[in-house]
Amino acid sequence: LSCHYCHSLFSGKPEVLDWQDQVFQFCCRDCCEDFKRLR
């Protein structure tokens, strides 16, 4: 899998964000929080 925010590859459990009828996967909570802050 690749992170939607930083595009790094990861194999662990992703942080998942269901936002505006789309599902995004992130490598860590920090990337998820940064993505939400920018949107």
Rank of each mutant, 00 (worst) to 15 (best):
D30K: 12
L38P: 10
C32M: 13
R37S: 12
Y5R: 13
R29T: 09
K36V: 09
R37G: 08
C27G: 02
R29A: 11
C28S: 08
H7Y: 12
S8D: 11
F26M: 12
L1Q: 01
W19E: 13
G12D: 04
L9R: 09
V16P: 06
F26H: 01
L1E: 11
F24L: 13
C6W: 00
D18V: 07
F24M: 13
K13I: 06
Y5N: 10
S11P: 02
V23G: 09
S2Q: 14
C28V: 03
D30Q: 08
Q22Y: 12
C32V: 10
F35Q: 03
S8F: 08
K13D: 10
K36P: 01
C32S: 04
F26I: 01
L9T: 11
F26V: 02
G12A: 09
F24W: 10
E15M: 13
K13A: 08
F24G: 06
S2P: 03
L9S: 09
L9F: 07
Q25A: 08
L17M: 10
K36Y: 02
V16D: 01
F35D: 02
D30R: 10
Q25D: 11
F26P: 01
K36H: 06
K13L: 08
K36T: 09
Y5D: 01
C31I: 00
S8L: 10
F35N: 00
Q20K: 15
E15A: 07
Y5Q: 13
W19G: 12
E33M: 12
G12L: 04
L38Y: 08
F35I: 01
H4T: 13
F10M: 10
C31K: 00
Q25Y: 10
H7S: 14
E33N: 08
P14F: 03
F26W: 02
D21S: 07
C3N: 00
D18G: 06
D21F: 06
D21C: 04
D30G: 10
G12P: 04
L38I: 11
F10E: 01
H4V: 10
Y5P: 00
C27F: 02
Q22E: 15
R29E: 09
P14I: 04
L9D: 07
C3G: 00
D18L: 10
R39N: 15
W19N: 13
K13H: 08
G12H: 05
E33T: 06
F24V: 12
K13R: 10
S11V: 03
C6V: 00
C31V: 00
H7W: 05
C32P: 02
R29Q: 11
D34G: 10
Q22W: 08
L1T: 12
D21R: 07
Q25V: 10
L1V: 15
D34F: 05
K13S: 07
D34Y: 12
C6P: 00
L9P: 12
L38R: 11
L1S: 04
L38E: 15
H4L: 08
D30H: 07
H4M: 14
R29N: 13
D30F: 04
C28Q: 11
F35P: 01
H4N: 14
K36N: 04
D30S: 10
C28E: 04
K13G: 05
L38A: 07
R37C: 03
Q22K: 07
D18C: 06
L1Y: 10
C6R: 00
H7A: 13
S8C: 14
W19D: 08
S8E: 13
R39S: 15
H7F: 13
K36F: 06
D34W: 06
P14G: 04
V23T: 13
E33W: 04
R37E: 06
L17P: 04
Q22M: 15
C31R: 00
P14S: 03
P14Q: 03
E15K: 02
L17D: 03
F35V: 02
R29S: 09
L17N: 02
S8N: 15
H4R: 12
C32L: 08
S2L: 11
L17T: 07
Y5T: 09
Y5E: 07
F26D: 01
G12I: 03
D30V: 12
V16L: 07
R37W: 07
D30Y: 05
P14H: 04
S2E: 13
Y5L: 11
C31P: 00
E15Y: 07
C3V: 00
W19M: 15
G12K: 08
D21E: 06
C31A: 01
F10G: 03
R37D: 04
C3L: 00
D30N: 07
F26C: 02
K36W: 05
Q20S: 14
S11C: 02
V23L: 13
G12S: 08
C27S: 00
L9A: 11
C3A: 00
P14D: 04
L38T: 14
D34M: 13
L1N: 14
F26N: 03
L9E: 08
L1M: 15
E15Q: 06
E15V: 10
L17Q: 09
L9M: 06
D21L: 05
C3I: 00
D21I: 05
V23I: 13
F10L: 08
D34Q: 06
K36I: 03
C28F: 01
F26S: 02
Q22D: 15
S2K: 15
K36L: 06
Q25E: 14
C6M: 03
P14V: 04
S11W: 02
H4D: 12
F35R: 01
Q25W: 10
D30A: 10
R37L: 11
C32K: 13
L1D: 13
D18K: 08
